[in-house]
């Protein structure tokens, strides 16, 4: 399956709702088959490792949104023939935020949400 040209306008959207709309994913449903793999507390807000896994058959696209970033969309991936529904990346987060993974599979959209904390640090036992 060949992907359609990606519309980069989605990178200009702000917040989760508008970005989902820009991705054509406004009707995405929460799904347990979409998982976000990341630390609960970021070691370094400039380098936060985040992975997306999809267990939905015929996954064709995966995207990562960070609610509190100036623009929510961080990355989108077209999975062509052969690609497994699993990508890992490292992203910047200015502050604690929900992150949302969006998956398009067989033309439908699914999503998952998770909080990642960015803390000032210090202290300890």
């Amino acid at each position: 399956a060949s992907a359609q040209a990606f519309d980069r306008a989605a990178f200009q959207a702000k917040g989760i709702a508008d970005t989902l709309k820009a991705l054509g994913a406004a009707d995405a449903t929460e799904s347990k088959d979409v998982t976000i793999v990341s630390p609960d507390i970021a070691e370094n807000g400039a380098v936060v490792p985040v992975g997306i896994r999809s267990g939905v058959a015929k996954t064709q696209m995966m995207a990562l949104l960070i609610d509190k970033n100036p623009n929510a969309l961080a990355a989108a991936y077209d999975l062509l023939e052969g690609a497994a529904p699993e990508v890992n990346m490292r992203v910047k987060m200015g502050q604690s935020s929900d992150v949302v993974a969006v998956v398009k599979a067989d033309g439908k959209f699914y999503m998952a949400r998770k909080e990642i904390k960015v803390t000032l640090g210090g202290c300890g036992g």
């Binding site: 609960d40 507390i41 909080e115 904390k117 803390t119 000032l120 210090g122 202290c123 300890g124 036992g125």
Partner: peptide, 25 residues
């Protein structure tokens, strides 16, 4: 306030995976 709230959450977040295990500043 931001500093105090940040440390306080490290101590009292209901989910232990979001705690760092020190005491309040």
């Amino acid at each position: 306030k931001t500093v105090l709230e940040d440390v306080c959450d490290n101590l009292f977040n209901p989910d232990p995976y979001y705690q760092q295990g020190g005491d309040m500043v």
